[in-house]
Design a protein around this nucleic acid. Structure first.
Length: 180
DNA sequence: CCCTGATTCGC
DNA sequence: GCGAATCAGG
């Protein structure tokens, strides 16, 4: 992917808004968080003073073990960023269009007698590869969020929502009651 | 293990 | 200039 003026500007904006490198990478698409961080440095953008990360105490960071056998594990590293990208891209526009920022306070969703996992109410940018991506609520309303519970393996949904998503024919009836 | 940013250096 | 590999830390 190329660092077009457009993409650079978006990077600047998101970075100044305090989004993490990986979140920015997901929104831009086609780049890793490392790419984002690298670009931020090259642009001489102010780093994260004291936020989350570390304060340059790393004297040996980046130094490769001299004769370290290059054992690239592309598969492992690529998976995380790449996959999330697709999911995020489509919804990015949606977020901006609606202006959902982070107004998601505690709001208990009343459920029937069925056991439903407590939604973690994650925002789009909080989704990772192993969080349930089951959408909850009306995307056009600002209380929209994603389930966000832990999803096993490579499943896009938690075990509960996976069953709703991949319903065996004989479960249809039960699902009707669960829907909410 | 998940994540964060920072750094170096082969490309 | 780019970004993977790596480090250091929460």
């Amino acid at each position: 992917m190329n660092w077009t003026d457009e993409r650079v500007e978006k990077l600047k904006r998101l970075w100044s808004e305090g989004l993490s490198a990986s979140q920015i990478a997901a929104q831009l698409g086609g780049v890793s968080r490392n790419a984002v961080i690298g670009k931020v440095h090259r642009l001489n953008l102010p780093g994260r003073a004291k936020a989350g990360g570390t304060v340059a105490t790393s004297r040996n960071a980046g130094k490769r073990p001299a004769a370290a056998p290059r054992a690239p594990n592309y598969a492992a590293r690529a998976t995380t960023t790449r996959t999330v990208t697709h999911a995020a891209v489509g919804a990015t526009a949606l977020k901006e269009e609606i202006g959902v920022d982070a107004v998601q306070e505690m709001q208990f969703v009343p459920k029937s007698n069925v056991v439903v996992p407590i939604s973690r109410q994650l925002a789009l940018t909080d989704l990772t590869e192993r969080t349930c991506k089951w959408p909850v609520g009306d995307p056009l309303k600002d209380d929209f969020h994603f389930c966000g519970c832990e999803s096993p393996d490579a499943s896009p949904y938690c075990t509960y929502h996976a069953r709703l998503a991949y319903q065996p024919a004989h479960d249809r009836r039960r699902a009707a009651a669960m829907r909410a």
